[in-house]
């Protein structure tokens, strides 16, 4: 667990980057620092591994004040991923990943084996191991950055806008990959971003910071969306806060009706499409109850001519159809809180 105890960072010129920040980043969870530029989110992150030292207050890592630990030793025990990956251009990918094991004095063979294992773990072709960073795409470099941060199996991972320099499609896949990795590894992650959608997608807890380095709200994403603390947080969350809230509403309880009563064409148990009066087939939007959120169900419904969403199981077999009335009922329950 990482604990901030009224941490303030004031620079010599009087600028206050972080102002009396107190919060906890629980073990095994992703805590996201989010806010506009100048809110001190990166400064806060860098105070954890002592790339910056606080002016006042303390940061505790499992109860130990980090300023009592020698910086190189502290940093070798904390994984770090930055925006442009920060790979060493003169080292092969495998050696980049093995950086911290090398620094820790691991046996060369063991360090490289570990690096190869991690490349696979983050979804990279082992053939890339012998390449240099310039030969990789931005997304691949960022995966290498994540592998490098994980190489010595640190309990804590700091991520400073790691995905903001890649295009949106790659960013989404990197985010999904992080969620998958985290479900396997359960690291204590502090993640910095200026992108509220990323914060809501990744965070177990989200700390919204305002300019001047003050904490505006610390909450889980669902609470953040339903009960923003003030106008600043509300504005920062943006316009479609209501729709995004649906992301956190489960779909287990939705009422399913028999597809035979609808115009849905089913073959071998799989949905083929909605049959229009003209006989044309319109592709059917689907969602998986229990796995996908109410937002996905609503999305599937909005894309179909009848306004109903098709519920399928993980193999894509039809479970039933959620009618517009059933969706309305679920939505009004959300609105009622």
């Amino acid at each position: 667990m990482i604990t901030f105890e009224s941490v303030t960072k004031r620079y010599a010129d009087g600028t206050v980057a972080v102002d009396g920040l107190s919060l906890e980043a629980p073990t095994g969870e992703i805590t996201v620092f989010v806010g506009p530029s100048g809110c001190g989110k990166t400064t806060s992150l860098r105070m954890i591994n002592r790339m910056i030292d606080p002016t006042e207050g303390r940061i505790l890592l499992d109860g130990t004040d980090v300023t009592t630990i020698d910086p190189p030793t502290l940093r070798r025990g904390i994984g770090y991923v930055i925006q442009q990956a920060g790979l060493f251009p003169h080292r092969k990918i495998v050696d980049n990943v093995a950086t911290v094991p090398f620094l820790l004095g691991w046996d060369k063979r063991k360090a490289k084996d570990r690096a190869m294992e991690l490349l696979e773990r983050v979804g990279l072709d082992p053939k890339l191991a012998q390449r240099y960073p310039f030969q990789l795409s931005g997304g691949q470099q960022q995966r290498v950055g994540v592998a490098r941060a994980l190489a010595a199996d640190p309990p804590v991972l700091l991520m400073d806008e790691p995905f903001s320099a890649v295009d949106p499609i790659v960013r989404t896949s990197l985010q999904d990959e992080l969620i998958r990795l985290q479900s396997e590894l359960q690291k204590t992650i502090v993640f910095v971003t200026h992108d509220i959608d990323e914060a809501i997608k990744l965070g177990d807890r989200v700390a919204v910071l305002r300019v001047g380095g003050k904490l505006a709200q610390l909450a889980d994403p669902r609470t953040l969306l339903s009960e923003p603390a003030d106008d600043f947080v509300r504005d920062f969350l943006g316009r479609d806060r209501g729709i995004r809230r649906l992301q956190f509403v489960a779909t287990d309880g939705l009422e399913l009706s028999d597809p035979a009563d609808t115009s849905l064409d089913v073959q071998d148990g799989r949905p083929v499409g909605w049959r229009r009066d003209s006989g044309e087939l319109e592709p059917a939007g689907t969602f998986v109850p229990g796995r996908d959120s109410l937002r996905s169900a609503l999305d599937a419904a909005l894309l179909s001519p009848s306004g109903a969403a098709v519920a399928v199981d993980a193999d894509g077999k039809v479970l039933g159809v959620v009618s517009r009335q059933a969706l309305d009922k679920a939505l009004s329950e959300v609105a009622d809180g």
Partner: peptide, 17 residues
């Protein structure tokens, strides 16, 4: 590049190394 220097610091390199 600054991000390379920063990441070296963050990995736990001593200044000489």
């Amino acid at each position: 590049p600054e991000h390379v220097r920063q990441s070296a610091v963050a990995m736990g390199f001593t200044p000489l190394r």
